[in-house]
Computed example of a mutant assay.
Amino acid sequence: MSDAGPALERLLGIMAHLRDPEHGCPWDLQQSFRTIVPHTLEEAYEVADAIERDALDELPGELGDLLFQVVFYAQLGREQGLFDFAGITEAIADKIVRRHPHVFGDGGRTDSAGQRRTWEAIKATERAERAGRATSQMDDVPVALPALSRAEKLQRRAARVGFDWTSREPVMGKVHEELAELEAAAATGSRADVHEEMGDLLFACANLARHLGVDAEQALRDANGKFERRFRGLEAELARQGASAEAVDFERLESAYQVAKAADKDGE
């Protein structure tokens, strides 16, 4: 294992210099906890993107960008006397040890499902201790999560106390029910009703994905990628015909899309 100490100390020093009131970077000096959140989310998605593209040669750089976000937060915390990088690392090390009694304690060996139950029970205890009162299963589900991921997490929390279907059939039925309600809302022309019913349908689809063992967020990311790939194929097909997507009607677009779709399937 390499010694990351000197490299990490260098990075922390660079961050402190960037925030130096006299000699630092004007942009970095303007930042706050709130203003760097969008950058943190962007860097996390770029890590996910590199992994999804199997671009592992890019991963160290992307992980470095994400680590820099943590270092930035640590510097802001140190300046305000709230916490520092050492405090962050100590806290996560303590938490990981505490949540793995089967590895670091006397909890005994267990399988993945048993470990997950232990993990969730410990997390629930931690939430109750922080709040000093009875807590909701819905506590600590970040609002900033992607909507599909948050829907699945909320549903898993509800399932802990038995608020869940025991088979996929009624979940399928709920999807059909929500689709029918969306169709009825669309017929009325009420944008508010359509908005609400669309949300209900997406929530039901996320629940169905959970029951089928599918990561809804990843499934939609994959579907996005497939559509983008095939649409690019559509554009290439039209270019071969001496045309462009902007200059043809829907029928010709659809025809080119089907050609691209067939070629995409052949390449899978």
Rank of each mutant, 00 (worst) to 15 (best):
A180D: 14
E251Q: 11
S149D: 07
H176W: 11
F83C: 03
D111H: 08
I88N: 01
T89M: 14
E181N: 05
H195W: 12
L12P: 00
A93H: 13
L253T: 00
L220T: 14
V248Y: 01
A151S: 09
D264E: 15
R78K: 13
V248T: 03
G213N: 09
L56S: 04
T135R: 04
T110C: 11
P21E: 01
L238C: 01
D84F: 02
A4I: 14
A55W: 09
Y45F: 13
A223H: 14
G114P: 02
I88Y: 03
E251N: 09
K261C: 07
P26A: 05
T135G: 06
L238P: 03
D164M: 12
P170N: 07
T135L: 03
D111V: 00
E251K: 06
I51S: 03
M172T: 10
H17E: 13
D193S: 12
Q115E: 14
R252Q: 04
P21F: 03
V37M: 07
E183S: 07
L234V: 04
H195A: 15
A239G: 09
E251G: 13
I122D: 05
K153A: 10
D94K: 15
R156Q: 11
A44C: 08
P6S: 07
R232Y: 06
A144L: 14
P170K: 04
D94W: 11
F250N: 00
Q137G: 09
C25D: 15
R240C: 05
P142N: 04
A93K: 10
Q155I: 15
Y45R: 15
E235K: 13
E178D: 03
E254Y: 10
V103A: 09
S167T: 15
T135Y: 02
R150I: 08
A4H: 13
D215H: 07
A260K: 01
R98V: 10
S32Y: 01
V143E: 15
A121R: 15
S2N: 14
Q69H: 05
Q155Y: 13
T188I: 08
